[in-house]
Amino acid sequence: MTVSDPVVEEIVATISRSATEIQQGLIGRRGAVDEEGRENPTGDTQLEADVWADDLLGDRLASLEGVGQYASEERPEAVDCGPDPATEDVYAVAVDPLDGSSNLESNNAMGTIFGIYDAPLPARGETLVAAGYVLYGPITTMVIATEETVAEYELTGGERRLVERDLELPDDPVVYGFGGRVPDWTDEFESYAREIEQELKLRYGGAMIGDVNQVLTYGGIFGYPGLESRPEGKLRLQFEGNPIGYIVERAGGRSSDGEQSLLAVDPEEIHQRAPVYVGNADLIERLEDALA
Rank of each mutant, 00 (worst) to 15 (best):
G220H: 10
L200C: 05
N213T: 14
L227P: 10
V215R: 04
R165F: 04
R203L: 11
G205H: 10
E168V: 13
T217H: 03
L227H: 13
G210E: 10
L169Q: 09
R160G: 11
Q198A: 13
G180M: 04
R203C: 05
D187Q: 05
I196E: 03
E199H: 02
V215Q: 04
G180E: 08
L216R: 02
A193S: 11
L202M: 01
F189W: 02
Q198K: 11
Y224L: 01
G219A: 05
G157F: 08
I209H: 06
L167A: 05
G205D: 10
D187F: 02
G220C: 09
E164Q: 14
Q214H: 08
V215E: 10
Y204H: 13
L202C: 01
G219H: 03
D187W: 02
L162D: 00
G157I: 07
A207V: 07
G206D: 02
L155H: 06
K201E: 12
M208R: 00
G158M: 07
E195K: 09
N213R: 13
Y204E: 10
T217K: 09
E168I: 09
G177N: 05
D171W: 09
R160I: 11
P183L: 06
R203I: 11
T156A: 14
R181T: 14
L169S: 09
D172W: 05
I209R: 00
V182E: 15
F189S: 02
G223A: 15
R161D: 12
R161E: 15
R181S: 15
V182T: 14
E188D: 12
L227I: 10
G219L: 02
I221D: 06
T217Y: 02
Q214A: 15
R181P: 15
P173G: 08
S191L: 03
G157N: 10
G219Q: 04
F189K: 00
P183K: 06
Q198E: 15
R160V: 11
L155C: 12
L202P: 00
M208C: 05
D187L: 06
E199I: 03
V182R: 15
V182C: 04
G219M: 07
L169R: 05
D187S: 12
V163N: 01
L155R: 07
I209G: 01
R203E: 14
D172V: 14
Q214K: 12
V163H: 01
G205F: 10
Y192P: 04
E159S: 14
E199Y: 01
E154F: 04
V215K: 04
F189T: 01
G179E: 08
G158F: 09
L169P: 12
D184P: 02
G220E: 12
R165G: 02
A207M: 11
I221G: 04
I196P: 03
Y192L: 06
P170M: 09
Y224K: 01
G210N: 10
I221L: 15
E168D: 13
V182H: 12
G226C: 10
N213V: 03
D166W: 07
Y176H: 08
G223T: 08
G220Q: 08
E159Q: 14
W185A: 01
Y224C: 02
L216V: 03
G210Q: 13
A193W: 09
E154M: 03
V163E: 09
R194V: 01
F178V: 11
I209P: 02
I209L: 04
D166F: 10
R160C: 10
W185L: 02
E168T: 14
T217S: 11
G180I: 07
D171I: 05
R161A: 14
G205N: 12
Y224G: 00
